[in-house]
């Protein structure tokens, strides 16, 4: 299994006993699957995605990534696993506005310590792939929302991850841009990348091969 969760819980601090966001979640996602996580606001979708993406730690339960027990990993190991194995696409793009599109795409490879030349050519290649040829030296503020999200996808692909985690990737986009981004994710999935996408949009969710519906911190179906 690519992703394997066993009784995951997450309790946020606050109040007397804390606030439980996840209350025992178990599921498996196999390699090459496209899973959409849906559910109303506050049901714990993003928390789950953060834990899967190693951005957050569960309060209890087990999480195995490619069979490795994540709970036992050090911060450095988690950082490396995140850098080399997971690409993120966020609703708010989360690009660094002071850098050009090209430099944003270069960044994950630089953290991975790749040689300069390889980084540059791969970044050009990825921007070309997401249809942004000629816009390499534009900063995110000079790009449209759809273009920004495509830069973000290129960045997510930089270190050739096996998993892409998308948190409401179309939430800030108009319908045509949304469709483009969705098509891109579907295409990547066809190439064999496992995609986990959090979304509100039932239509988009229907395009995914698998639906995980959440409610109040547990999986409904």
């Amino acid at each position: 299994m690519t992703i394997s969760c066993r009784g995951l819980t997450k309790v946020y601090e606050g109040g007397k006993s804390g606030w439980p966001a996840l209350r025992g979640i178990s599921f498996d996602i196999g390699p090459g699957e496209f899973a959409a996580v849906t559910g109303p606001s506050g049901c714990g979708k993003s928390t789950l995605l953060n834990i899967i993406g190693l951005l957050d730690e569960p309060s209890g339960g087990g999480y195995f990534l490619h069979g490795r027990d994540v709970v036992k990993m050090s911060d450095l190991e988690r950082s490396d696993a995140r850098r080399d194995g997971i690409g993120f696409v966020f609703q708010a793009f989360h690009l660094l506005n002071r850098l050009t599109a090209l430099d944003n795409v270069c960044l994950p490879m630089m953290y991975a310590g790749a040689p300069d030349k390889a980084i540059k050519s791969r970044a050009h290649e990825l921007l070309h792939k997401v249809g942004l040829k000629g816009k390499e030296i534009k900063t995110p503020l000079e790009l449209s929302g759809g273009e920004r999200q495509r830069v973000a996808i290129a960045r997510a692909l930089a270190n050739s991850p096996k998993i892409i985690l998308a948190d409401e990737p179309t939430g800030n986009l108009d319908s045509s841009s949304s469709r483009e981004v969705m098509n891109m994710l579907l295409a990547l999935n066809k190439e064999g990348i496992t995609v986990v996408m959090v979304t509100h949009d039932r239509e988009l969710a229907a395009l995914a091969g698998r639906n995980i519906r959440m409610m109040d911190g547990v999986i409904e179906s």
Partner: peptide, 16 residues
């Protein structure tokens, strides 16, 4: 802070 989060998400470790 947000930038720090982004950098960590795309692979920066604590040392970076």
């Amino acid at each position: 802070t947000k930038e720090i989060g982004v950098r960590r998400a795309i692979g920066a470790n604590r040392g970076d």
